[in-house]
Design a protein around this nucleic acid. Sequence first.
RNA 1: GGGGUGGUAGUUAAGAUUGGUUAUAACGCCGGCCUGUCAAGCCGGAGGGCGCGGGUUCAAGUCCCGUCCACCCCGCCA
Length: 583
Amino acid sequence: MLRTHNCGELREQDTGSSVTLAGWVASIRDHGRFVFINLRDRYGITQVRADEGTDAWQQARQLRMESVIQVHGTVLSRGKDSNPDMATGAIEVQARAIRVFSQTKTPPFVIKDTTDASEALRLKYRYLDLRRPVMRKKIEARVRFTSYIRRYFEDLDFLEIETPILLKSTPEGARDFLVPSRLRPGQFYALPQSPQTYKQILMVAGFDRYFQIARCFRDEDLRADRQPEFTQLDAEMSFVEPRDIMGIIERLFKGMWRDLLGVDLAGDFPVLTYDEAMHRFGKDAPDMRYGMELQDITDTVKPSAFGLFRNTIEAGNRVIAMNVAKGAGFSRKQVDTLVEFARSRGLGGLLWMKVGADGVTGPGTKHIEDPVKQAIIRSMQAEQGDLILAAAAPEMTALRAMGALREEVASRMGLDKAGEWRFVWITEFPMFEYNEEEDRPQAVHHPFTSVMPEDLHMLHSDPYKVRARAYDIVLNGVELGGGSIRNHDPDVQMQVFEVLGMNREQALQKFGFLVDALSFGAPPHGGVALGLDRIVMMALGAGSIRDVIAFPKTTAGLDLMSGSPSNVADRQLRELHLQVTKG
RNA sequence: GGGGUGGUAGUUAAGAUUGGUUAUAACGCCGGCCUGUCAAGCCGGAGGGCGCGGGUUCAAGUCCCGUCCACCCCGCCA
């Protein structure tokens, strides 16, 4: 070994020891007669001292930040000059000799926790960014989550089985990343959006309990919490019902939060149906850290002659309202930005009423009759100083917009407190939603999801009313993942394909291998897929998913460090039978 | 595909509304001083022509057009 100790382990009781350390020069403080060096490695920082007249002193004066060096020396107690802010602050290493392993160019930014370097620069020099202890800790924390997950599932007899990265492109869902086949001109593999079909086939094969920390790929636009390649905790079990899977996942989260974050999540996670979540929170992934629930006040305003209400009711639309406690303090300007926000979410406008000592004020309120005003205040349980916001629109539009507004207002008022963890299960999702582009139903979850038995009879007559045996796990307004009980009956599966607009032939061509497998004795089975990056991001309070991925892509899907994607040689294209056209 | 914010020394920012001498600061870098620092301190120095391309003008970081990049949001993400 080129060292006897690491840079984080020497303590007072090591005083007098002869040691050899190795690491990066994190700072140099040259006092003339002696030089202090902070030596950094993965484990911490140790102060090295070089005294005038020694070889080490000569070398220390010529060091540069971020060079990689080896230090031979003796551990000294720092006595009253100890630094209580450093783990190794009680000691320092008096250097006898310093050897430079590796010289360095001047780094483009200073390697310290509170860097002000732009994210683009940090991504280009990711290896320098990752040297920053704050980044290193995030990556290390991620490792603790993955290893906890592995231990948890292995203890429960789950088998971690790898599934293919090159697979068949499927038409449903996100856009596939395609990989051209050299041996089959004009044909393509796709990278997995998830190991979905393979894990179901593993159930048919009898593996009974499967899990995988699986890389997934989706060629869609990026966001602060979305990368084109990401990691899923993927699991599947045979002979289960929703509550079995939900229980296993709930205990996993409670265990991780307890053992990795030191947080006790008391009680069972609440369970909301999709319908309830939409009506109370305007979102299928509600943030439960605060109330401010939505209310349908259509009936309350029914007696009013106010044109907005009249037209809304005649059109069959709804009036959805929300009471912002102590929201009357918002300035006109602030309220205007809320109105703007509402418009950006598809509303024609936003009705707002400040609740004062003598009723309500706000534009439009003069058209509302006093008894109706009073009725609104009563049904919203509003008090003096509150702000009532209301939207009039088709029900789902109004709910979704008000749901977004609810989170916006909560964020402005600081109600979305960090360190508060509100998990919630969402169940009974609709099986299908309308795809406008293709004018047909599409699966909300995925086509292999089974439907609730009592809704099966509506599969063809009223597909949008059919509920799925699906469940999502949500934390603080963020969907962490979800799953479902699958169809193990090939006939039911075929019926779902039919509702999705595929005839038997098309379905067999696209998913025949799975349908085939189901027809050879498939056990009832179901599973779940959780976004590992998102879980870690939430747990660490990181601002973006990029912070918990060692080598992430930018929002344009570029890797600024390696320069991918890039052009390839003509020869490569020819081998793949590809021709690039000008876009 | 659409909207928003930003791009000025190695880095982070000011300068842009009201075009005009030599583009400003901090950190970093280089040199010097200094017996206890902790992102050491003090003194001195070097370093950019304003993302890129084009245009308007006597004159453009400053105005106009296009384009690239970063971030945030909508669409999209079974």
